[in-house]
Every structure is written in structure tokens, then in C-alpha cells.
Design a binder for these strands. Structure first.
Lengths: 202, 202
DNA sequence: CTTGTTTTTTACTGTCCAGTAAGTAGAATA
DNA sequence: TATTCTACTTACTGGACAGTAAAAAACAAG
């Protein structure tokens, strides 16, 4: 009947695919208008359907926002594993990670993650979201600590550095425009250059 | 009658003082709950009055948000003038400015400025707000350019550096907690240290 | 082509909240 | 002590929007 409960464990691939389209339309709409200003009618319009159709794939606006953020967090978790694999210095791993981070954050779901605040979510979703964010933060702190130990990173307060990096790169998700003058890789290079080398002349 | 139009040019000092209390209560409430989630009833409660009392001092929620941001922008404009006065290197002026910037951004109105997005404002207010922000951005770019010319700052893309600095320091307004482990001046020192010296070991 | 299932529609409800109308307690002024 | 302004209050309105109910398409499968 409702199609959603679907106790038949394997929800069809088609359903999952369509759900992803729904979430992407939602993310784009939230990013364009802001989560609170965007209505589900706006989201539906972006996708070319009417509002109630969305409720076939999610049961609240909150759940949609959460799912979008979760997709981004999953991608970032993947980036974390990718950058940690090889035997690199802490600084190199940090650099690799933030390259991937920047790329993800400039995609639909990544932007949605950084543009939304945990407090926009209901209690349950919020907890999961915050713990995902915290995991990333801790992993980055670890990289920094490793880098300080292996001598690739100048001794510093790893909490503060981690936050500064995240805040600076998150900003990218706010203002980066694919149609702007600078290509994303060029911007990333400059960001990393600023952080790695510092701004003071030698 | 309405008390507000007050064609008698000089609005009483008492009125202006109370208006500031209203705006401060609004800023604190917006910062605590988020602008869209916070209702004017919440703001009124924070101040210990009822909602319509607020309309004695402002004619819309939008105007309140705008006024809060404007107070912060005025303070920041002042900081800009303060840091530009003396004959210092570009790097020193930049450093001085971001010290002041951080302090302002961690106050009620400053936090309100960075936590609110221009798109939350109505067209007219938004234009004024954006132009205020842009003026700051341009002034900082100038400092950077001066610093590069006078040899205190390593050559770099001044637009990108300005954005990275603003984004990183704006983050401060989001997470800084006066009751946290680190005092604000200590955090500012570490931020500046990271940016000035870079994170790579020598 | 008929029966069942998936997907989406039209039409509606309930609530929340910005903003308004009208009146009132208290202070200042005459 | 009447009058006028200031600074609010109580009581309300209108519209927007998340979410629901029920029916209708669209699509399969026998």
C-alpha cells in the first residue's frame, strides 16, 4: 500500500535511484534558497513533480535534509579512508584529505552539509549528524598530531588548526561558483599554499 | 501617536537606548536559536515583554535583523579605521584588523552578522548589508596588496587570501564559547600564528 | 484486457507566526 | 486633576507551509 515500509527487505534499485534524484533536487533547492526559506513545493518544482510525491520517498522535510547531509558525510568518510591508506607524512595526508574535502564540499550534497546547521535538524537526526561531523574533526586532529610527531607539521594546537581548516574550506561551499573566474583546483591549490606556507614573507 | 515616525527630528536618547536593548535581545535570540527558528515571541520573552512591544522599535523582523548586522558592520568599519591609521606594514595592519575583527565577531551583534546570510534579508536591506560586507572585503584586499608591495606579505592571490581569512575568523563567531577552555585572545593568537607562519615545519 | 502494484496527483487540514488593532497603565506636562 | 504622550498589553487576522487523505494515472504481469 504505502510502498515505503516495504518489509520485503530489498527495496527496488529503481526506488533507491529515484530517491537519490529527489534528494539531489532537495539539496540544490536548499542550497539555492536556504533550508528554511525553501519550501517543499520549491523542491518538488525543481524536480518537476508536486509536493506530495516527495512524501513517497521521505517522511519529513527534516528527514530529507538529514539524508542529504548523510550522503555528504559518507563521501567525506570515504575521503578520509582514501587519504589515510598510504604511508605518507601527516602533512601530506592532511593535504590529500583537504583536496578531497574541498571537492566534495563543492558538490550538491556537500554544500548542503556545510550550509545547514545541526540545529536545523530534529533531535534524533541532529545527534547522528553531529557525531558524523565530530568523527571527521577528530580524524583531522589525528593527522595533525601525526604530522607534528613525524616532523612534517610545525607544533601547534591541533584543535584550533583543525577548526581553522574546516572553517576556511567550508566557506568554499558557500561562495564557490563553478562558473566563476577561478577553477576549483586552482582555488584549492591557493588555499593549501596559504595554510602550508603561511602569509608572512621570509 | 505612533511614537515611531517622530518627525521631531531628535528621537529621545531614552528611546534609542531601549531600542538597543531590543536589538541586543533579538541578536542573542537569533544567535541561540537561528534566525528562522527564532520567533519574535522568543525575542520578546528574552527581553521580558510581549511581541507587539517590539513593533514600537522596529517595523519588521527583517528590519531587526538588518539593524543588528548594521551595528556589527559599523563596529567593523571602526576597526578598519583604527587599524589603518598608523604607518605600519601591510601585514601588521592586517594582523591588527583581524584581532579587532575576531573580538567584534564574538560579540552579540557580530555573531548575528556572521550567522545570518544576506539572503535572509529583504531586497533593500540585503543590498546595504552586502555592500557593507564587500567594503570590508575590499579594504582587507587592499591591506594584503600593500603588504605584498612593502614586502611584509608573501605574494599571493589577495582575493583568495581575504576570503580564507574571513571564513576562518567567521567560524569563530559560530563555535566560540566564552565559557570554553580557551580564552578568546589565546585563540586569536593561534589563528594568527597559523596564518602568518603556516603549518609546514621548516 | 484485467488485476494488482507503483508512483503521482488533486484537494484539503492544522498549525504556526509575522504583523495589526485597539485599548490601558503610568509618567510627564499643563 | 485633567490632558497628553510613552511604552506597553490583550486579542486578533491572514497567509504560508508541512503534512495527510484519497483518488487517479502509469506501468506491470498474468
Amino acid at each position: 500500500m504505502a510502498g515505503r515500509p516495504k518489509t520485503k527487505s530489498e527495496t527496488s534499485a529503481k526506488y533507491e535511484q529515484r530517491k537519490l534524484e529527489v534528494l539531489r533536487a532537495a539539496a540544490r533547492t536548499f542550497n539555492r534558497l536556504g533550508f528554511h526559506i525553501a519550501t517543499l513545493d520549491d523542491v518538488a518544482e525543481e524536480l518537476g513533480v508536486t509536493k506530495p510525491a516527495l512524501y513517497y520517498y521521505a517522511k519529513s522535510k527534516d528527514e530529507i535534509l538529514f539524508a542529504c547531509g548523510q550522503l555528504a558525510l559518507d563521501a567525506l568518510q570515504g575521503a578520509l579512508e582514501t587519504s589515510g591508506e598510504e604511508e605518507l607524512s601527516g602533512l601530506d595526508r592532511l593535504t590529500r584529505f583537504f583536496r578531497l574535502y574541498a571537492a566534495i564540499i563543492c558538490e550538491d550534497f556537500g554544500r548542503c552539509l556545510v550550509l545547514s546547521e545541526p540545529r536545523d535538524l530534529a533531535t534524533r537526526s541532529r545527534k547522528a549528524n553531529v557525531s558524523g561531523r565530530r568523527a571527521l574533526n577528530l580524524a583531522v586532529r589525528d593527522m595533525i598530531r601525526d604530522g607534528i610527531e613525524d616532523g612534517s607539521i610545525r607544533p601547534c594546537d591541533e584543535r584550533v588548526l583543525a577548526i581553522a581548516l574546516f572553517d576556511a574550506f567550508n566557506g568554499l561551499g558557500r561562495w564557490f561558483d563553478p562558473k566563476g573566474a577561478l577553477e576549483l583546483p586552482a582555488i584549492i591549490d591557493r588555499y593549501l599554499d596559504i595554510f602550508i606556507g603561511g602569509i608572512a614573507a621570509r
